[in-house]
């Protein structure tokens, strides 16, 4: 085991993937010589060469198309989008061409592409560098959406994503890149796509969340235990599409109350989808309506006010209290 940051764990996963599979390639803006603007690909070009770890011209649409084309030829491209707000230029590849390759060809072709991008706020980055666009991605049939909350899961899930024969969008929360360290096995291992993780056991209410909000929710759970005497279960979704319905339903059946916490703006995203899953599968287990704690329905574009915009422990504890006292 080694102790590493999440960005190092991500780097480690890509190093192993490049080592084990000659079909793995990495490309994007500044990922080669510079090792990526967050150093996620640091040292990989030096080790594996410019033919496998490439700086591309500055064109997200080009990067997306390159990935789709290589993918259809049996390569396993890892395409880095420098920031989540830059994916709009590449949405045809990300939301149409890669995810529909299997479907459009009736199974003749597939597209084992992994798109990676940093997302999320909390580090005072400029506009279009901190958005949460997972709602857009999970509405896209044919692509899986993965979002780790810690270094261990990041490495294991990224290796699963690269090996997956369908396209995966791998979301890396910016705030987690350097802010927390964790134990990570040095060898290859995988964390399965589609499996949520109960990171805190409780009996009174379940918080479903992902990414950086896992850590905010854990802190809120501790406060609720101390101040409200409520035992809060926290479930880290880890994969946002497809959702782990079984773990979600089991937890609701146990605690009878649920809250969804997402950093993203409120409308049409992971939270409403999760609430639908609960309604369809565990409505009669509920003792209170499911509450959501989210950002506001505005763009998150102003670093000076992002700390107030992003859900905090106070907002989550309020929700715990409301749901428990319903």
């Amino acid at each position: 085991m080694a102790t590493m940051t999440m960005v190092k764990a991500i780097n480690d996963a890509m190093r192993i993937a490049l080592q084990n599979d000659p079909n793995v390639m990495i490309f994007g803006e500044d990922v080669g010589k510079n090792g990526g603007v967050f150093r996620a690909t640091d040292g990989l070009q030096a080790k594996f060469g410019v033919d496998r770890v490439m700086d591309t011209p500055l064109a997200e649409s080009g990067i997306g198309g390159l990935a789709v084309g290589l993918g259809v030829q049996g390569f396993r491209p890892i395409a880095e989008m420098q920031f989540i707000g830059f994916i709009f230029e590449a949405l045809d590849s990300i939301m149409v061409q890669a995810p529909r390759m299997r479907f459009r060809s009736g199974g003749r072709y597939n597209n084992p592409v992994t798109f990676r991008a940093p997302f999320g706020g909390g580090v005072k980055s400029p506009e279009l560098h901190s958005d949460s666009l997972e709602g857009l991605l999970i509405q896209t049939p044919g692509i899986k959406v993965v979002c780790p909350s810690n270094p261990y899961d990041a490495k294991g899930l990224l290796l699963s994503s690269i090996k997956d024969n369908d396209p995966v969008f791998f979301l890396e929360h910016l705030k987690l890149y350097f802010s927390l360290k964790g134990e990570v096995p040095e060898d290859e291992y995988t964390v399965p796509i589609g499996k949520a993780n109960v990171v805190r056991e409780g009996t009174d209410v379940t918080i479903f969340t992902y990414g950086a909000m896992v850590h905010t929710s854990m802190k809120a759970a501790e406060i609720a235990e101390k101040d409200l005497n409520k035992k809060v279960e926290v479930v880290d979704l880890r994969t946002l599409s497809p959702l782990d319905v079984q773990t979600i339903v089991s937890s609701v059946e146990k605690t009878h109350r649920a809250i969804v916490v997402q950093e993203a703006q409120r409308t049409a995203g992971v939270a409403p989808e999760l609430i639908s899953v609960i309604n369809e599968n565990a409505l009669l287990s509920l003792d209170a309506p499911v509450k959501r704690v989210t950002g506001f329905d505005t763009p998150l574009g102003h670093p000076l006010i992002e700390d107030e915009w992003i859900p905090n422990t106070k907002r989550i504890v309020n929700a715990i209290e409301e749901v428990c006292n319903f």
């Binding site: 409120r266 409308t267 506001f296 329905d297 505005t298 763009p299 102003h302 000076l304 006010i305 107030e308 915009w309």
Partner: peptide, 27 residues
């Protein structure tokens, strides 16, 4: 002057729709 969440909400549309107005009031 510092930015505020209500101000952000009120600059998304010409007329703030009901769901955003509600988010503002809750805040």
């Amino acid at each position: 002057e510092k930015m505020t969440i209500p101000n952000l909400i009120d600059t998304v549309y010409e007329t703030t729709p009901a769901h955003l107005e509600q988010q503002k009031q809750e805040y």
